[in-house]
Structures are given as structure tokens and as C-alpha cells.
Write a protein that binds this DNA or RNA. Sequence first.
DNA 1: TCATAAGCGAGACGGTACGTCGTGTCTTACG
DNA 2: CGTAAGACACGACGTACCGTCTCGCTTATGA
Lengths: 197, 197, 197, 197
Amino acid sequence: MTSELIDAAARPRWSAREQEFLTITLRLLQEHGYDRLTVDEVAAEAKASKATLYRRWPSKTDLVVAAFIEGVRIQARPPNTGSLREDLLAIGGMICATAGTHAPTVRAVLNEISRTPALREAMQSEFLDERHALFNEVLEAAVRRGEINADAVNPELWNVLPGYLVFRFLLPTPPPDAETVRALVDEVVLPSLTRKT
Amino acid sequence: MTSELIDAAARPRWSAREQEFLTITLRLLQEHGYDRLTVDEVAAEAKASKATLYRRWPSKTDLVVAAFIEGVRIQARPPNTGSLREDLLAIGGMICATAGTHAPTVRAVLNEISRTPALREAMQSEFLDERHALFNEVLEAAVRRGEINADAVNPELWNVLPGYLVFRFLLPTPPPDAETVRALVDEVVLPSLTRKT
Amino acid sequence: MTSELIDAAARPRWSAREQEFLTITLRLLQEHGYDRLTVDEVAAEAKASKATLYRRWPSKTDLVVAAFIEGVRIQARPPNTGSLREDLLAIGGMICATAGTHAPTVRAVLNEISRTPALREAMQSEFLDERHALFNEVLEAAVRRGEINADAVNPELWNVLPGYLVFRFLLPTPPPDAETVRALVDEVVLPSLTRKT
Amino acid sequence: MTSELIDAAARPRWSAREQEFLTITLRLLQEHGYDRLTVDEVAAEAKASKATLYRRWPSKTDLVVAAFIEGVRIQARPPNTGSLREDLLAIGGMICATAGTHAPTVRAVLNEISRTPALREAMQSEFLDERHALFNEVLEAAVRRGEINADAVNPELWNVLPGYLVFRFLLPTPPPDAETVRALVDEVVLPSLTRKT
DNA sequence: TCATAAGCGAGACGGTACGTCGTGTCTTACG
DNA sequence: CGTAAGACACGACGTACCGTCTCGCTTATGA
């Protein structure tokens, strides 16, 4: 599974020109949000034709989703600090670092996701599965180290940590910070994982 | 605080006609999603003029947000079952019941929220604050009953339960069900609230 | 026929308040033209309700036509200078004096006239007939004085003088002036009326 | 001058597609009048987008004026029958033939003309100047043939014939017919042109 | 002197057209 | 042959205006 991740990350999914399109898309997305982003603007900034963009991504939505997935792909590395608490804090910090800039993108992608099942699957396979695998690694390592009990890990709840953090980023309230992450790890996630079943 | 909530809920924020607009908007939103919803369609279904809608809500976005806020307002009642666990399960069930139908709306509203601060504030004061108050009541009652310790409640993390559930509804994965709620309450929230500090 | 004219002019067709509406309408018409004139603006300037206007004139067009007819009514007096040439020059001067300010109104009224037959009849009976009568008087007086021959007057062509002048006012070319009127009378109308048949 | 006219007429001012737009506009204009004509309808009949129309003519008014100018352009050919009387009768007949169908258009165009100077100039250069040139040719030919005296032609009054006829078409009275034209030529225009100065 | 009605201001309303803008398709010309 | 440039059909947005309507307030009359 690890090798797949590496492969997936290493494989040149997009050419340099395509990367440029996605980068511009991502930037404009963060600046204007989904609705205010226009394909014409992306094309103009890239000095490309709209047809060139549509040849690769059949709709604005596809373009945006691809840009999002590309934008968050890089961070998907297991921290492997040797301690569950440190691993969780590292993951939380990583999420905070990226979700802050990508919040408009995430909002847009979530909004578009309700439309086409294809997009749902793309999101599932290209983003969530990777995250799930990353988390599994961290938790399995903790089990191997004896820090937690294997049956304390509920597969339905693996994403409480990232889920809550992302939720917080989507809200209009002040975004979570390092202290939020610490509290979440120490007062929620670890108590849950180390509870007596 | 309870009286404020009741007042806020009882106060006729919108006239009957306006309520009708919001109801139609909400229904069409659930049916088509944000982008496929057209103001013309809302007007036609309400046998109203577009100008009438735009007089109240200066843009499609404002209309949708108002519809959302109105649509979720009703559920904001503390369950008060006498047991913290039951209260939390009730709240979780409530969220599952409403978030399922409102998921497209929530996605749309979140997406639009990144645009204008005014919208942010509306979301904050008209939606989140009410939820916070509701949660506070439940937790304070539990403290009074001695079920939990007052300092186990971290004010930054009060919304882990609703936050995670909503997050799950936004995802393309299968939505949370009663078992998810139970697991979340028993294996995450309660261990956190009853942990030894 | 003369008495009818006098009666028509003397009869208080409109109350003082209604006159005020018509005056404002006429002014705004000259300022903005027909399309840019809004009933709301007339109502606002008159500090009246739109309903009050619509109670009297069932449509914007009726209001405008009434204003126009009222605006040009006053000038409909035979000059009676004792000389055909002087009479014609007087009429021409009169037309120049009024058509200049009323050009936008005339344009508007003509445009609207193609729509409803009712308006056509109003224009015919309330405006053209009066002008025709005025002209007849002048020409008959000239016949009586022996200046022209009765059969030189073609009833189809009685309005060449006003017609050409009005036409000129409708055009974007510089409007006719006193010299134009003189040339028209001396070089066209009089040669026609005094030609050998 | 003749060559200029021919050039102007031959020059493809509008593409075939644009001509189609103008033709449809002209037809709908004659059917419904200016106000009842909608840009949407023109676009629908032409299976075109509104944006396509607005790209060429920035407003409904511009579209209508262009359609009018195009619609009357074709007829601007000197008759050249060899006799002044026949030439005038031919021109008069031409005007009657076209002004009848174009009356609503002319009314609309005149009405809109009072708005923007640009429109005024377009009307002047693209329509009136051509007519003036045509008339000059006819009259100069008559002078060359010795039918009339050069100084009997007042340049201010060149358009009495078309002006009066158009005026008559604008009125709600029955439109001029062949007999009207004959009377106008024989009893007004020719007496004026052949008078002793 | 008070009440009941008629008229008016203010302005919301349904409807409809305008003019703008964005998406996704398509054509043209260039390298 | 792929691409930049951009025209195009479609359709929604948000605005403006017309003509209708309702709501209060005022005024003018009847008890």
C-alpha cells in the first residue's frame, strides 16, 4: 500500500503545462472562490485557449477538482515520529497548514461533489483512500508499539481528527490553531484510543 | 439564554409570504443543488416576480443562505432526556435526520460563505451560536447532575460531535447512521468528557 | 366650426392637478424622450401616486398623448393678418416655435400611434382636424380676398406647409428657421397656390 | 458621386449572418412595432444568441436603426427616365412603395434618434446624404436638359417631395397614393421648380 | 363633535424585457 | 497536428419599468 502511494505520487500524472494550469486554477480558486473563478480567466492567465483546458478536463468542475487533488497530494506522507501522540500532532499540524489556504477549494469541491457520482468516486479514490491509508499506518504502528489496543480503533471513526479540523476550517469561526490540535489530540482522540473497552 | 432562544425562534423573522419563498427555495435546493437552482424557477413556483425576491435578498446566494438558516432553525431544541448519553444520542440523531436532506444546502452555503463577511456573521450569529447554546445547556445539565466534570469541557471542542457528523455528511462516503452516532458518543465523546484530567 | 374650436379650447378638459401632471409629463418628455420617461418619475415629481395617474390615463401612452395634445393646443389660432403670404408665414413661424420644443414629443406620439386605433382617432380628431380647420380658414379667406383661386387648393395637399416643417423638425438635420419658412412659402406654397391650372 | 454611391451600396457592410439578423429584425419590426419587438425573439428566430446580437449592436435601438438603414438602402437608385416629371413620379412611387411597409420602423427610428448624437450622425450620413445625392442627380439632369433653371433649386428645400410623403405616412390619415404623388409633383413641386424667379 | 366614507400618498407586487456574463463547443489561422 | 484566439448557442443573473393592487392617512361630509 505504501508503494502504491509512492507510485501514485511519483507518477507524472500531469505534464508540466498541465501542472501550470492546475497551479493557476488553484491560486485563482483561493483568491476568488469557485463561482467567481472563470475558465476564461484561467485560460487568459495561462495564455492558453479554453479548448486546451476543456480537452483535458471536460468541465470547470473537473478542472477544479483536479487542481484540488493536486494541491493536497504532496502532504500525504506518514510522519512516523515514533510516538502516536507526536504522529497525531504532526498530522493535525499538516492539515492546519494546508486546509487554511485550501479552504475555499475544499468548499468548492464539496459543493460540486453532490452532483456527479464520477466526482464522488474520484474524491473517494484519489483523496480519501490515501488519507485513510496514512492514518492506518500511523495507528497500526501505534498498535505494534503497544501504545493502543487494536480493537480500540473503530474503522468508522478513523477520520475524527482530520474531519473535525476540516470542519472547523469550513466554518466562519476563527480557524483551529496548534492549541486546538493539541486539545483535540490530548482530550479527544487519545482518550478515545486508550479508553478501556 | 433559553428565553432568548425561544424569542429568537418565536420572533417572526419572515412574513408568511417570505417563508413560502424560503420553503420553495429549500425544496428546489435539495432537488437540484445550488447551481441548478434558478431564481426564475423559485419565482415561478411561488407565482412571484423575480423583483420581489431580489427586494428581500439581494442575490441568489442571500436567498439560499436565508433558506438554509430558516430550514435548520426549527430543530434547535435541547432534548433534555435526563442522561448525558441519551442527550448526545438525541442530538446526533437530530443532526443525522436533518443534515441528510440538507447536505446540498450546507455544501452550497459553506461554499458561498467564503465570499462576504456579512454572510459569515449571519452564519455565526444565526446558526452556530444557537447550536453552541444548545450544547452548553446539555453539558451544563450533565455537570449539574454530576455526570461529568466541569473542566472536562473544552470550549474549543464543544462541537466535535456535530462537526464530525456534518463532516461525514459532506463527504462522498456513505453517510453516518445510528451506529455511527452511537460509536461516536460512546467511543469518542463520552471518553473525552469523562476522562481523568 | 370656429365655435367648436373655441368651445374645445375653453372647456376645462383637465383640472388644475391634471394640468400639473401633463405639464410635468411634457417637460420630462422633452428632456428624456419617450422611452426614458417613466411613469414613476412623473408621479414622483408631482408627489402623486402612480394610481392617481393611471386613474386618469389608462396607460403611459395615453398620458403622453394627452400631454402632447395639451401642449400644442394653445397655438391653434388663425393669424388673420389680411394677407395670405403673411398668414402662411405666421403659421410657419408658429410651427417652428412650438415644434422645436415638442420634437421629442411628436416623435414619441407618432411612434405610439401605430399601435392602437383609439390613439389614431384621438390624434385625428383632437389635433389634425383642428389644424385642418385653421388652414381652411386661412385659405378660404384668401379665396374670398381673391388672392388665390378656389380650385388651386387641393384638399389632399393642404398640409404641405406644416407637414414639411414638421418633417424637418423630426430629422437630425439642423431645424428649419425663418428663412426656411420664407423660402417654403415664397418658392413652394405660393407658386403652387397661384399657379395656372 | 455616382461611383461613391455604387461603392457604398456594393461594399459589404454586414456579413451574410448579420444581414440575416437585420432582415429578421426588420420583419419583426413591421409585424409588431418597436416596443413589441424583443431581442430575444430576434435571437430565437435567427437561432442566435443574444450575446451575438449585442456584440454587433450594443442595444436594441442600434439593432433597429441598422435594420432600417439596411432595409431602405436598396431603393436608393436614380430613376433616370429622361424627364423630370417622370423622375419625380418614379421617386414618389418608390417612396410610397417602401415607406408603407417601413412606417413603423421609421417611427421607431425617429423616436430613438433624439437620444444619442451618434445615431443622429448615422442617420445623416447613411441615409439622408444618399437621398440628397440621388435628388441632386435628378435635378442636375433636369437642369442639363434645360427643363428647369439652376437657381430655381433651393438647397434647403430639396426634400419637400420625400419629406411631405414621409410625413403623410407617419400620420394616422390614409396614406398617400399614386394620385397624391401626381398632385404633389404637378401642383407643388413642378410649379415651384419652374416658377419665374 | 365625532364617525364613516371617499380619495390620495406611498410603494409592494406580477410580469416581462433588457443587457451582461459564464460555460462548453466550435472554427480559423498560425507555427 | 496541436494550439491560441475568440466567436458562438445557451441560459441564468440582476435591473428596470409598466400597470395593478393594498395599506394608511387625510379630508370632507352626515349624525
